[in-house]
């Protein structure tokens, strides 16, 4: 008989089981996407071959066009399916009778919550990445086919029109900034959703849990925005794209970098959201541990 268990090992088990629970549905969409890409690739090969008759090439072109449209549709649906699972599984595994199993596992509420954030966060990011990749790749391909011009060369022409500003470093910095901001905003969104569902299952609210979770969601989202605006007012930390192709960071007022003919990206809201995410994580975990009532 063993009384104690390794917490890290149990956390890995949580990750494994949360992944398995979600993968059985979400993975079907990835498989569909891979099959569609496969069809697209095969049709492309057939279409590009000289030794195959015209009729077959025309058929392959039609199938390829359908696969392009379906790929974009499936990758778009993937985002919604994943989001549905982010919400549904969180509710189902913790606040339905399944909660009797989840909350009596030898793990902490931080671990229960952390596992879901990691697994579903991973799925969400992957779904956005799949959508972006599918859209950009296939749209670029279609543009090449229709316009006969590479999108990248189009971008290069646009950049030439702007002269040397912005530099490649600045473009890369901008892209990194956008990805990080997207990640932080997405994290905030999930943390607000989880917080709302959890709060709506405390005894006083659980009779009207759906309405309560919607109201709590909007109130919390507004509080997030208000705090981030306030923090930006107090300390406006900005990444500035200077005309001399360099990047600099500093605390500037809005007028300073706009009037000074500088291009700048605000960093403070990202930090504010990150801090709020951490606070929300522990607040949700605390409510889950202390206040949630399983029916």
């Amino acid at each position: 008989m063993t009384g104690t268990s390794k917490p890290k090992g149990k956390f890995l088990m949580l990750l494994k089981n949360d992944f398995l629970a979600s993968a059985r549905v979400i993975s079907l969409f990835y498989i569909a996407l891979i099959i569609l890409f496969g069809i697209f690739g095969i049709c492309n090969l057939i279409g590009g071959s000289d030794s195959i008759n015209m009729e077959l090439i025309e058929k392959a072109t039609s199938v390829r066009n359908v696969s392009i449209v379906l790929s974009i549709v499936v990758s778009f649906l993937l985002i919604f399916v994943t989001f549905f699972f982010v919400v549904y599984d969180f509710f189902k595994s913790l606040f339905s009778p399944q909660g009797y199993l989840s909350f009596t596992l030898p793990v902490s509420s931080n671990q229960l919550l952390g596992s879901k954030v990691i697994v579903y966060g991973g799925w969400m990011l992957l779904s956005y990445a799949a959508f972006m990749f599918t859209s950009v790749y296939l749209m670029n391909y279609t543009a090449n086919e229709v316009v006969g011009r590479d999108k990248i060369s189009l971008i290069e022409s646009l950049l030439t029109m702007l002269g040397d500003f912005p530099s490649t470093t600045q473009i890369v910095a901008y892209l990194v900034y956008m990805v990080l901001m997207f990640f932080v905003i997405f994290l905030s969104f999930v943390s607000i959703v989880y917080f709302s569902i959890t709060v709506s299952h405390i005894r006083q609210l659980q009779k009207h849990s759906v309405i309560a979770s919607i109201i709590v969601f909007f109130i919390t989202a507004l509080v997030f925005l208000w705090i981030s605006f306030k923090m930006t007012d107090i300390v406006n930390f900005v990444m500035v794209f200077n005309e001399d192709k360099t990047l600099s960071f500093g605390i500037l007022s809005e007028n300073e970098y706009l009037v000074g003919n500088k291009l700048g990206m605000e960093v403070t809201p990202g930090f504010a959201f990150l801090i709020l995410d951490v606070i929300m994580f522990f607040a949700t975990s605390h409510i889950m541990h202390k206040k949630v009532n399983l029916k």
Binding site: T2, G3, T4, S5, P7, K10, A21, R24, K92, S93, P97, Q98, G99, Y100, L101, T104, L105, P106, V107, S108
Partner: peptide, 21 residues
């Protein structure tokens, strides 16, 4: 009641708690 106690207790609730999948 916590992680250690939960590893010592086998609990059978009145409800069906297993995931339907």
């Amino acid at each position: 009641p916590g992680k250690v106690s939960k590893s010592l207790v086998a609990f059978l609730p009145e409800k069906t708690y297993l995931a339907s999948w």
